[in-house]
Simulated assay, not measured.
Amino acid sequence: MAATTDDNGPAIPPAIESAWGLRERPPKGPRPGLTVGGIVDAAVRVADTEGLAAVSMSRVAKELGAATMALYRYVGSKDELLMLMVDAGYGPPPGPAAPEDDWRAGLTRWAWAEHDVLRQRTWLLHVPITGPPITPQQLGWLEDGLRCLDGTALAEGERMSALLLITGYVRNEATLTAQITEGSRAAGIEPGEMMPAYSRMVSRLIDPARFPSLHRVLTSGVLGQEDNPDDEFVFGLDRILDGIEALIRRRAV
């Protein structure tokens, strides 16, 4: 499928056209019941239940009871399918900040909404990011985040940078949590038991004279406590928002 071109700007790739409903469905064929949306929904179901590695055009075709080649009449490639899956996987944006919320409460809600999506659908973290958001749902998320900063003294570029900082933090925390969870389960350890086990092992390995700061952390008992990843998420998000708040105050002077 070739990209659409005109005199008003760069060519629009087929995947983006499909995401925005700008591409007409193919002429009637042997499986007229197939649609781009139905194919994407089936691919998301496979990813939700079997992981991203299980998603292929043939596996999705099997999910739909269709021939693999029939899918290519609607979705040109697996890369195109992945782009559409990410948009569908994120789902509708969380909505702008409530009238009673200030910018900080709004961005906190926005960050937690993305946090919850990525915790539920960890396969989203395995899809490579190939560029800035361009599909409808993703731009909707961006719009809602920007609206949270309406009325602040930040310049438009600073607002975009603030959202990039927050979403980068959310993705990093979600990736770290998912990898630790997968690693601990592979080792037969419940995720909440990993840090206590880690603390005991490090205590056996280090020399307090060589690692005095780490030794003080170990003796405080903080590493031996059952780890709640949400506590770490709250701490990091609050520190980022503290920094944005300091910048807003400085810009308002």
Rank of each mutant, 00 (worst) to 15 (best):
R104L: 11
R239Q: 07
D101M: 14
G224R: 02
D101Q: 15
S199R: 03
R239C: 05
V40P: 04
P94G: 15
S220Q: 11
A209Q: 15
A209W: 08
A186I: 05
Y74V: 09
I244R: 01
Y72M: 04
G151D: 11
A246I: 12
P14H: 12
D102W: 05
M201D: 08
L214Q: 04
T152D: 01
I39M: 08
L163W: 08
S161G: 04
W103E: 07
Q225V: 04
S18E: 14
P30T: 06
Q137N: 15
D144M: 02
L139F: 15
D79C: 04
D238M: 10
G224V: 05
E226T: 06
A162K: 02
S220A: 14
R45T: 13
A3Q: 13
A11H: 10
V75R: 09
R119H: 09
H215Q: 08
T108A: 00
G145Y: 04
G221K: 01
S213W: 15
T49G: 07
L223I: 00
F211A: 01
D7N: 07
G183L: 05
T181D: 13
R210D: 12
R251D: 10
R185F: 00
P93C: 07
G37Q: 14
L165H: 03
G21M: 12
E143H: 09
V234Y: 12
I166D: 02
L164A: 15
C148L: 03
L124Y: 10
Q137D: 13
I166F: 01
V117Y: 03
P92C: 03
G37F: 02
A197G: 04
A54Y: 05
E50G: 13
N228R: 08
E50K: 12
W20G: 10
L247Q: 10
P128T: 14
M57V: 07
L214W: 06
